[in-house]
Design a protein around this nucleic acid. Structure first.
Lengths: 196, 196
DNA sequence: TGGATATTTCAAAATTTTCTGAAAGTACTA
DNA sequence: TAGTACTTTCAGAAAATTTTGAAATATCCA
């Protein structure tokens, strides 16, 4: 018989299975660290914590287990899970004879960071690059500036061009890393390692 | 005679010198883009905008000019300038016969990103790495786990170790980039370019 | 040193972001 | 098709972050 469904359970005895104390502590610590890191990265703390929990526990959990373990509301859990699923960091899973939905985190660390990079590139780098190009076009080669402003505008364009070039570089690095093989960054890393 | 000092000036006619319309528009656009980008990066929008203004204008400005151009308060300008100075992204400058302090932005784009990387590494990566090591120690080799938990803990440790390894890698990449010559990333970039 | 200008600080206000929880929605089962 | 279990949504509440602006502080010059 399932526990009475409610929005926030009183958690009479939350843990699913007894784990050694040290393991539990280490998991909790990891969850805090990851939550902290996420929020300095612009990812909501709770979303990062849900991800951390699923990653570090290694096996699928359902929404109630997540709510209990992290002391968060059902709405918050649902929204975080949705975002994580949209990103591709977690997958749905099911258990026989249990109608609840379970969630399992991607376990390959490289893949995890590839996904995060893909998402951040898409949301943060690409739009900036596009906007910078539009911005650059405002003072494009066909400028009608009076002669006395010519060099001022040229200096401005130079500054913009350098910025665009650099961010373009970062963008293509990210693209390399994100691409299926992900060969690019591995290669770079190997070489850099030797260069140290 | 200087304008009457006040906390927020009514800006009777703010601009210092007339610039062609397109230049001004392009500057404004750049400032918005950079502010947006900064805030998706965890850098206060206003701080990023002040930096963008100083970078794109290319010459030193004083606090009043910055306040007027960005429509921000004196306190906000002062705090942003302090942070930017702490980071090393701007330097103080002075003009003959003017008691006001002027600020000039670093103009080398690579150096700008090196500074930003250094700061973010220091504030975001290094503490995470240290915390992860502490976390890992909680279930270190000398674990007293009962036999039936042994493999559970080993799996946990594996997950932590992979995460630590990856973040350590990012950390050393950042270190390479930040280091005086900054040779590392340039090299990597060159090689990646060929690898595409 | 005194008076003026310039800068910094910080408590409170404004804004932005995130979370809650009850209601609405969906899907399964009998 | 009705009833139950489960999930999602979203308006409002709460929390976190950022900005303001006036007072305090520092600096300059005669």
């Amino acid at each position: 018989m399932p526990a009475p469904s409610s929005t926030r359970r009183p958690s009479p005895r939350p843990r699913t299975a007894r784990s050694p104390r040290a393991l539990r502590q280490s998991q909790n610590r990891f969850i805090s660290i990851w939550g902290e890191m996420g929020s300095s990265w612009g990812i909501p703390r709770t979303m990062a914590e849900v991800h951390a929990l699923l990653y570090i526990v290694g096996e699928p959990l359902n929404t109630d287990q997540i709510m209990d373990r992290l002391s968060i509301s059902r709405g918050s859990a649902s929204m975080s899970l949705k975002s994580l699923h949209d990103w591709g960091l977690i997958a749905r899973a099911h258990k026989r004879g249990d109608r609840k939905e379970y969630f399992r985190a991607e376990q390959d660390v490289w893949q995890v960071f590839r996904i995060i990079t893909r998402e951040r590139k898409r949301r943060e780098i690409d739009p900036v690059l596009m906007a910078l190009h539009e911005c650059r076009d405002l003072t494009g080669p066909r400028t009608t500036a009076a002669v006395r402003h010519r060099s001022e505008i040229e200096a401005h364009n130079l500054r913009l061009d350098e910025m665009i070039e650099f961010i373009g570089l970062i963008d293509s690095l990210a693209e390399q890393f994100v691409s299926p093989s992900g060969k690019g960054l591995r290669l770079a890393v190997g070489l850099l390692g030797k260069a140290v």
